[in-house]
Nucleic acid binder design. Structure first.
Lengths: 203, 203
DNA sequence: CGTTTAAGATACTCATGGGTATCCTACATG
DNA sequence: CATGTAGGATACCCATGAGTATCTTAAACG
């Protein structure tokens, strides 16, 4: 084992993620990824054996970062409804407001239409997120803070709405402003809680 | 003006749409589009001057088809709530169930991240759809069939949910089954009507 | 202190596909 | 019936970027 490089695969994956999130998968070349990580194409291929592999690695990088954010967001909170709201707010903040995340996930959708492994990776990630939400919602319901019949259906619909809002943000960047964010979080929470639906400004 | 070809641009656009909806923009070559329309690349370029132009034409083709479907769906109906429900059902049917539409719109999202004209075209389309929904919802509200405070916000959230459901359908094809469709339509309607939220099976 | 080994650099190959140059052909017109 | 014109066909160019072959270098190890 020669020089300095056990962390090189991770460094490449991070840089690939950053570039993919700015320009999309196709527009980013191996040379760019390698250059951004401070190496050349030759050594890139001694860590990853194809472009597809670095794409998969970048996806894993994203999934891990999301999970960390999620658990950090609810770490200090005890109240079930507060925990639910905190994670919804975190999702809106990172998924909707951050341009790079929007681009990256949009690319994942496009690619997963053609690549089974990308698709199954996303599905696994999505399932874990869904289960997390269902658990939080069930706890809120048990505490009498939500009145929805079928937590699973409510979570599915709410997650769908988040994805849709994310797409809309591509076209209407004003969604990123705090007031809009609050409206969105309110609408999403009302889907989860199962009462008075999208009425802006229900805190 | 020589032979038979005033309809050639439209023929090319239709065939391009079909291929794009199956394989995505990048994977489809000009040769394929031309061949499917019964001509060769040379004559393709006498109708469209770049690949980008045929993509834009295919988008217009899609937008027009959607509008036609929408107005056909509500043509014979008088009751405001029925009209609203009919168009939601149509959207779920064509957007969520049809694989080709899913692929095509996903590609539009990915491309509009990079192409201003694609983005503004979609935005215009989206606005017209939104206004249509808002009008229908306002009518339903006036008839006492919906109780939402802000129809615009409700429509935005509902449309976001449709987009999200469409993406989910890529990963979970069982969404296409009639029972799931009914659940989804029910959830979407409850967002619009502004009462008891996602409870499966509310007709 | 040489030998091994793998990270890294350099310089290629080569398939792909968008775009173009050019020729052909049929129809409309005078 | 000649001629101009535009749709259509054929053959080509060429930029791009993934992947590879091969050389170099420095750390680890006996």
């Amino acid at each position: 084992m020669p020089r300095l490089a056990p962390q090189m695969p991770a460094v490449l994956a991070e840089n690939a993620f950053a570039l993919f999130g700015r320009n999309g998968f196709d527009a980013v070349t191996i040379d760019e990824i390698a250059a951004r990580a401070g190496v050349t194409k030759g050594s890139f291929y001694s860590h990853y054996k194809s472009k597809r592999e670095i794409v998969l690695a970048a996806c894993q990088h994203y999934y891990r970062a999301y999970q960390q954010n999620a658990h950090r967001a609810i770490a200090g909170l005890r109240d079930p409804l507060q925990r639910l709201r905190a994670i919804v707010e975190m999702s809106v903040r990172t998924c909707v407001v951050d341009q790079s995340t929007r681009v990256f996930t949009t690319e994942i959708f496009a690619l997963s239409l053609k690549d089974e492994q990308v698709r199954s990776g996303w599905l696994q990630f999505y399932d874990s997120v869904r289960e997390l939400y269902i658990g939080l919602l069930a706890a809120a319901k048990a505490a009498g803070q939500a009145h929805v019949d079928d937590p699973r259906a409510a979570v599915d619909l709410m997650l769908a709405a988040i994805e849709g809002v994310k797409l809309r943000a591509v076209y209407e960047p004003h969604i990123a402003c705090p007031a809009e964010q609050r409206t969105i979080v309110g609408g999403l929470m009302s889907i989860l809680q199962g009462q008075t639906c999208p009425q802006p400004g229900n805190r």
